[in-house]
Amino acid sequence: MMNLDRTEKLLLAGIPILILLGFVLPEWVVNYIQVSLGTGLVALAVMIQMRAGLVSFGQGLYFCIGGYAAGMAGKFMGVSDIFILLIIGMLVSLFMAFIAGFLLRRYREIFFAMLSLALSMILYGLLSKLEVLGSTDGFNIPSPTYLGWAPEGDTAKHALYIATCIPALLCAALLNRYLRSPMGFIGEALRENEIRLEYLGTSAHRAVHIKYMIAATVSGLGGVLWALALGHVDPEMTNWTTSGQFVFISILSGVGNIVAPLFGTFILEIVRVYAVEASPNTWQMILGVIMLLTIIFLPKGLWSLIQRKKASAEETTQK
């Protein structure tokens, strides 16, 4: 029997809880949860790379590839089944990362960050010029079907919400299992001492390549879920501002737990809503101040507050 840790149990228990909340919470909150799960997966992809000492400023590349792959399959090939769209988005993202990984695996630190950003902006420029894909406006995606079932109205909204919650939380649970595996711990070794890792017989280049492909696949999944939730894709998905948002979430939430970026994404969405309402012209400044305060007072992110509480509780128990 598979041994589940506390985080995996929390994620699996969260699936029915989120589904039930979808029927009782206000529609606008449900929409934010749904969107946050899509972008939260991309933040997770950034997080698992950060654990290996790699900061990707271009993760929007695979967020966009996943969304556009699913959108193009629906628009040009008539594919509407959500399971097929999810597979297409992940496979295309994985394939592109496999190719790009041969370049990025050779670089670290700022060079890795800037190269990932450059690739993302190349795609942004291409999509902005392609009129067949709507240029800068993008294009709409048809409503998905579920193994031949095509719900309508509120039923369609609930079905898509459920179809977002299940793969998002299952993916997070699998990523947590991956980080607990020997391959996951190689990432931390890569961050601490790459030369020693090589002496132990593990190729650092191959480890980076594999981690990059995993992050791309997860981002592609997030891109498909996000695109289906909004029913639209556009080049802004791969713009530097979007990629920067994922890095922002990872710093805000911290890398201490796989759940942290999912909560951080939802918190960011809510903060942005109230920031725009309070200061429509300078709401970015509010987010910048929050980012600055987090870096100064919580350098390990918001999740460090929970870790401190746990450590405090353990000390009290031991006494």
Rank of each mutant, 00 (worst) to 15 (best):
L117E: 09
F139W: 02
I110V: 10
T164M: 05
T241N: 14
G231S: 11
R106C: 09
E109K: 03
G138S: 04
F102D: 04
I122N: 14
R108D: 09
Y107I: 14
P151W: 02
S120D: 08
A118C: 08
T217N: 02
F185L: 15
H209V: 09
P235F: 00
A216G: 04
I214P: 04
L175C: 03
N239D: 11
L221W: 01
P142F: 06
A156E: 15
G125S: 09
L117H: 09
P144S: 01
I214A: 05
L230C: 13
N239F: 15
T136W: 04
D234W: 08
L225W: 00
L190T: 06
N193M: 03
I166N: 10
A163T: 10
L133C: 08
A100P: 04
V224E: 00
C165M: 12
M121K: 15
L221Y: 02
V224M: 01
G231C: 09
I99K: 14
I110W: 01
L104D: 08
T238P: 06
N140P: 06
F111E: 14
E152D: 11
H158M: 15
V132S: 15
R177H: 12
A189F: 08
C171Y: 05
N140S: 12
A189V: 05
K211E: 14
R108N: 08
T155V: 15
I166C: 10
I141D: 00
L230P: 12
F139N: 00
